[in-house]
Design a binder for these strands. Structure first.
Lengths: 244, 244
DNA sequence: ACAAAAGTGTTTCTCATACACCCATGT
DNA sequence: ACATGGGTGTATGAGAAACACTTTTGT
């Protein structure tokens, strides 16, 4: 790796972090899964939206920088959110102002937890359904970052417990199913409730899913579902990949 | 992300790439899966082994830098090898000479394809079984990189076609099984040949696995296996995760 | 009363594992 | 001849999907 002769290295690049913040919001199945985009009011720039991001400070880890980016751009304390490194984008030509490597991250949050009130800019960040992303309107290579982030989450939802990162602390089986439908495949909504429950039975047996013992409040028609609480490690995985 | 006022950015970091090169070599199941390590002959450095890596040139992509690292450290043209970005390690304290971000990569190769004759250094790189890695003897945070690389490949082998990257162009079912055993779980060697074939039946039906029509040459005792050729996209995935 | 959503139980079918048997090679 | 490894076929069992039926809500 590094040539060991030199005792000091002359910096040649700038480090940045960009964060793809995902959430689930009450909306149609197609629009429920949403991502946080920051408007760029600069009149001279062609692209008018970007992912929240900052330059990495001298003595800052990437994780710290990513959480600071969210604090600065949305005004919310991101200390406890799930955050994972996605990939690093650093094509020599991606930024005209010099070589910038963007260490992109994925954050998963419960939308209840956010009230967006930006600190640094006057234009607040906005939620955007992943099915309605203005691809051609994104700054830098943020379209590529976003595409990879979406693929990563879509893949991970089948074997890791990402759903529980996005759902509120208490939820019903329908919520769980709807979350999966929004991210991965709406056709699971056709599945019978019976079969859905059977798939989560092992989680219940393992005490990872705990029945709260109460019913949800009625939401329009139909019988309200039983409430559950997730009580497992949020970074855990399913025994086997979900069959859907 | 970047503050758009500035028109030039002052570099604050150095970019490096490190590559975890995996291969399969003829050895016991426990030792078949191996990784490439570069000796560091410097007498004053405590750690005496490292991953192959270089500093990223000004007008170079990470992919290009990674392949160059292999060329320089092992003397082999890595143009066609499978290469994937793993993660970026850039703790502010990882290198005493300044802030260095290492964009680590994973490379998968067929060991037949390599003759190691290093260009830059006089000490040639060496293969090391992943079960016998000198963890405490690795430079920088290369132990952490290696750990993540191993986990990534171990996980990916169940749903992606990484095995076919590591196997020679023509192979038998036993080779396939042995490859999986070396990376993931030796207990598959106890499985009956019948069941192994059934798991690959879908691949054969889909023309991704093609029977060459010949037998392998005898290797010691027992009937030699039928030969197969892989004829699918190397970046493809299994329909469902392998059950093992 | 009825439609809509949720919960329970049973049936069916797919597929992974287990097992029994045949084939080809080296000693 | 026989031990060893590879190939073919069938049986068994777990689990996913399909289906029938009951329970709870709003209109």
């Amino acid at each position: 790796m590094l040539s060991v002769r030199e005792h000091v290295l002359t910096p040649t690049a700038t480090l940045a972090v960009d964060v793809v913040v995902f959430t689930l919001r009450p909306d149609t199945v197609e629009r429920a899964w949403q991502v946080l985009l920051v408007p760029r009011p600069d009149p001279w720039s062609i692209s008018r939206r970007a992912l929240p991001g900052v330059l990495v400070d001298e003595d800052e880890t990437f994780d710290e920088a990513a959480r600071r980016a969210l604090l600065v751009k949305t005004g919310i304390d991101a200390r406890d959110w799930y955050l994972e490194q996605l990939a690093t984008f650093g094509s020599p030509t991606r930024d005209s102002r010099g070589r910038v490597a963007s260490i992109s991250h994925i954050a998963l949050i419960q939308s209840d937890n956010i009230k967006i009130h930006p600190v640094e800019t006057d234009s607040p960040a906005e939620w955007c359904p992943v099915t309605a992303i203005p691809w051609s309107d994104l700054a830098f290579d943020h379209a590529a970052i976003l595409r990879e982030a979406i693929n990563r989450v879509r893949g991970k939802v089948r074997y890791a417990w990402v759903l529980f990162q996005l759902l509120p602390p208490i939820f019903t089986m329908s919520d769980l199913r709807a979350a999966y439908a929004a991210i991965r495949d709406p056709s699971v909504l056709n599945m019978s409730t019976s079969n859905v429950r059977k798939l989560f039975r092992r989680l219940i047996d393992d005490q990872a899913l705990v029945a709260v013992g109460k019913r949800a409040e009625a939401r329009g028609r139909g019988r309200p579902g039983d409430l559950f609480r997730f009580d497992g490690p949020l970074t855990g995985t399913w025994d086997r990949e979900l069959p859907w």
